[in-house]
Design a protein around this nucleic acid. Structure first.
Length: 224
DNA sequence: AGCTGATCATTC
DNA sequence: GAATGATCAGCT
């Protein structure tokens, strides 16, 4: 078995690829792909995500759009503990801090990214060596009406604060399902944002993240 | 600098 | 212990 060289042409093919790697460890998948496994993820935080992108045939590289644009599917690996609970929040996308006028929830990047997600849980307990962590079977998720409404409310509140020039007042405590946190290589990175008087200010870039409590409900529904 | 892939580590 | 705020790596 080796990684596919082309993207899946339909959803079924994508799910089949998931089933083929389900139950395998990251070490096995790396070995089959002739890739070195890092001792820890401290300096390789995106390693497993990129390994699984390779195995599912997602187009490599960073693009602001979905991982499988032809299928309208976004891939998210999610680290879980032994009880299938998420160990980390889930990054959704970069947050625009200088909003083009007329952006609404329905046209937002967050909603587009989350319209259809292939969740791929991976054992993430730190006592398990990276190479021994196993991949679970992935599952497709589309937000239900209730979930969409929840996300919309958070997105609208956060976006309103950004538009009104209150980015600096936003903390990760805002938002029930979706929240905003810094997203940068380090604290020296600055980007343009709106200040309280409508002026341009410099601030740390932010990203939208899904809370663990939210992703936990998705995992529960999928795996009980 | 912007954006992707995220996890780390200090604070609470 | 968990959540918040900070950080790491690679590509465009």
């Amino acid at each position: 078995m080796k990684p596919p060289s082309t993207p899946p042409t339909n959803i079924d093919e994508l799910l089949q690829r998931c089933q083929q790697i389900a139950g395998l460890s990251l070490g096995e998948l790396a070995g089959l792909a002739a890739i070195q496994v890092p001792q820890n993820l401290q300096r390789h935080k995106g390693w497993q995500g990129q390994l699984l992108e390779l195995w599912l045939g997602a187009t490599a590289g960073s693009k602001p759009q979905q991982d499988f644009p032809d299928l309208g599917v976004e891939l998210k690996t999610i680290p879980i503990d032994r009880r299938w609970q998420p160990l980390e929040t889930t990054y959704v996308c970069y947050a625009p801090l200088m909003n083009p006028p007329g952006v609404t929830w329905h046209t937002s990047n967050v909603r587009n990214k989350l319209a259809q997600v292939l969740w791929l849980p991976v054992e993430g307990d730190r006592e398990i060596p990276v190479s021994e962590r196993r991949v679970a079977n992935g599952f497709l998720w589309t937000p239900g009406e209730d979930e969409d409404a929840l996300l919309q409310k958070d997105w609208e509140e956060l976006t309103e604060m950004i538009v009104l020039g209150h980015v600096e007042k936003i903390t990760a405590r805002h938002g029930n399902a979706l929240h905003l946190r810094p997203k940068a290589a380090d604290g020296s990175v600055l980007t343009d944002a709106l200040g309280p008087e409508g002026q341009r200010i410099k601030t740390r870039p932010r990203g939208f993240y899904l809370r663990k409590t939210f992703t936990q409900t998705l995992l529960m529904r999928a795996f009980g």
